[in-house]
């Protein structure tokens, strides 16, 4: 492989990894606190993307004079709010009643919520199952550095993923709410005894997790400007793998897992496209066999 190609693929990998990392952050937050693989997380992303789509289309029919950067920031806010709302709604209606029931019923419910969102959106007459072109919020600008092509949206993806990770780490480690989150994650009952409002903490986590999904949704839609109700399934699955890879429940781990997976997938694909398709799961299986707690996860001793 030539050197420019090598670096080009590295950039490609970082971009893909940034998308995975953004989705993985949300997965890891929710899993960390209630031990639920929230299969519907990838569909919160889709909800966020559609919310921005309708918002931006509406604004653009009113005026074309709005500066792109303002439009993007407004869009981002819409995505965060839409993602947070749909996540909390799912939590309230579907997950909360099952909080103290067997975990696997909650997991099956998550599958149900995921299917419901996908099919519901596909059935709504004004959305439908088909693909939609996502409007350009920011004008794509490409530039060449030493034969390697970069563009502004790639940099935005990578930058925002890192910023959000730092922000989350700060919230979890430095705030009272973060402390409550960690306590609930370790032992719900003990946390309750310590005067922590467990349900409020979980709600907070779902709001943050949903907002992250919304952010991932708008960035994914800007990077790959084609949205449809099933858009979250495949990246969601890969992002979950990324979260497990990094050590599920661990925020920097989700980030690391996302980037590693993105880069590995790009290089594997450029070697052989068949290999690229299976690499995510192959890596996952190997890592879990060698280090079941993931790369940055802490080893949990088995309770007897």
């Amino acid at each position: 492989m030539e050197l420019t190609t090598f670096f080009q693929q590295l950039i490609n990998g970082l971009q893909l990894g940034a998308i995975y990392a953004l989705i993985a952050l949300g997965y890891t937050m929710v899993y960390g606190i209630i031990r639920l693989i929230n299969f519907a997380h990838a569909d919160f992303l889709m909800v966020g993307a559609f919310a921005v789509y309708f918002f931006a289309s509406f604004i653009l029919t009113l005026t074309n004079a709005i500066p792109p950067i303002i439009l993007f920031i407004l869009g981002l806010i819409v995505a965060l709010v839409a993602g947070a709302l749909i996540a909390e709604l799912s939590n309230r209606l579907a997950y909360k009643p099952l909080r103290y029931k067997p975990r696997l019923s909650a997991l099956i419910t998550a599958v149900g919520v995921s299917m419901f969102l996908e099919y519901f959106f596909a059935s709504l007459p004004f959305i439908g199952p088909s693909f939609r072109a996502f409007p350009d919020l920011l004008k794509p600008v490409s530039f060449v550095v030493g034969g390697v092509y970069l563009n502004n949206i790639q940099l935005l993806d990578i930058g925002l993923a890192i910023v959000l990770m730092i922000l989350l780490t700060f919230i979890v480690n430095r705030t009272m709410m973060g402390k409550a989150m960690r306590a609930v994650s370790q032992d719900k009952d003990a946390a309750k005894l310590m005067g922590i409002n467990v349900e409020r903490t979980i709600t907070f986590v779902f709001l943050i997790g949903g907002a992250l999904a919304g952010a991932a949704g708008i960035l994914m839609a800007m990077t790959y400007p084609r949205i449809y109700p099933n858009m979250g399934i495949l990246p969601g699955l890969k992002a979950f793998v990324a979260a497990v890879l990094g050590g599920i429940g661990n925020i920097p781990g989700a980030m690391l897992g996302g980037f590693l997976l993105g880069i590995a997938e790009i290089y594997a694909t450029s070697y052989n496209s068949l290999l690229g398709e299976g690499i995510a799961f192959a890596i996952l299986i190997i890592v879990l066999l060698v280090r079941p707690q993931g790369l940055l996860g802490e080893k949990q001793s088995e309770k007897v």
Binding site: Q9, N12, M220, I266, Y267, S270, G276
Partner: peptide, 8 residues
């Protein structure tokens, strides 16, 4: 959705 690896 990402075809960059193959395209590169």
């Amino acid at each position: 959705t990402d075809f960059n690896a193959q395209l590169t």
